[in-house]
Design a protein around this nucleic acid. Structure first.
Length: 299
DNA sequence: CTCCAGGCGCCTT
DNA sequence: AAGGCGCATGGA
């Protein structure tokens, strides 16, 4: 290993289990890629390389180590008592199986704008495609920066003000199709102060959700993703096609014509104050075990 | 070729 | 309130 590839700093993982691979592969963020054992990605203007070695996180960053440590500790929620979160889950055999299946899967604390943009791009797209679009947008309008000497340059995702100045045609050129006017509209609302994303932290989950859903292209699912993945609303419960399959197959087995509204109502009551964290385990399990999920009587 | 993907907006009943 | 459909794009 060259000196350039030595970590500039490291962070202890104080509440294991923590699994960096699961966190970055589980479809809650779209800008990270793996290269030679390191994860390369950006958090606002902070360009970094990260890897997990047992119970610590090593990093190289374009900003000074003390600042990078602060940003990364927060982003990867290393200060969160993860076992205490799991302990708040309801007594539920299937959920516990999903937790065992993906030990150390955490909810990251993303930048609200980047999270909003990512999930506006996500509708009826596979995760691999969302990553492609994300990268195209980043490389088209983000200034390239290297985490350190000897590292490849990465392009931060453009901020709302930058996207707001683009044209719909420029965004469509990145392959996002009908999502272009949605992303542009949301960027303008955020850039012109029509919606202050940070202020949503101070609102109750339902109120913050209403504000997000006033944005073009943002319905309940995307709003819940933004609340959960970037605004510390642990009770927000995104219901996508995979979660719909889980709920129908596991919690409403054999019943026909269960409405989405009823599934959502059940989820809110059943999964508790950390429903969103439970959702991420269910989502990941369903996505990687579609066959087992479809098979009856295998719990 | 067809089908579907971490949905949403709009249009019918 | 609840259900159906079109929307861009790309990979299986």
């Amino acid at each position: 290993m060259t000196p350039a590839h030595r970590a500039a700093g490291w962070l202890p993982i104080r509440h294991p289990p923590f699994c960096l691979d699961l966190c970055l592969e589980s479809g809650q963020t779209f800008g990270w890629r793996q290269e030679r054992g390191w994860w390369l990605g950006t958090i606002r203007r902070d360009v970094c390389a990260v890897r997990q070695v047992k119970d610590r996180l090593e990093f190289v960053s374009s900003v000074k180590p003390s600042e990078a440590a602060r940003v990364l500790r927060h982003y990867f929620a290393l200060d969160e008592d993860h076992p205490a979160v799991i302990a708040q889950f309801p007594v539920d055999a299937f959920l516990r199986k999903a937790v065992r299946f993906a030990g150390g899967l955490r909810i990251l604390r993303q930048d609200p704008w980047e999270c909003l943009a990512g999930f506006i791009l996500s509708s009826t797209k596979q995760i691999i495609h969302i990553r492609q679009i994300w990268r195209k947008v980043s490389e088209s309008w983000g200034q390239p920066i290297a985490p350190g000497a000897g590292w490849p340059c990465l392009h931060p995702f453009p901020c709302a003000a930058t996207v707001a100045r683009l044209s719909e045609a420029q965004l469509r050129a990145c392959g996002m199709g009908f999502r272009a006017p949605y992303l542009l509209g949301a960027a303008r609302r955020v850039a012109d102060g029509g919606l202050d994303l940070e202020s949503l932290r101070r609102l109750p989950t339902a109120g913050a959700r209403d504000r997000l859903m006033a944005l073009p292209g943002v319905g309940p699912k995307i709003a819940n993703c933004v609340l959960l993945f970037s605004l510390d609303k642990a009770d927000a419960f995104p219901v996508d096609t995979w979660i719909m399959k889980v709920l129908r197959a596991v919690y409403f087995r054999g019943k026909r014509r269960v409405s989405p509204a009823r599934l959502i109502g059940f989820s809110a009551a059943h999964f508790g104050p950390y429903a969103g964290h439970a959702q991420q385990y269910l989502f990941h399990y369903a996505r990687l075990n579609p066959l087992r999920l479809a098979m009856p009587g295998r719990s």
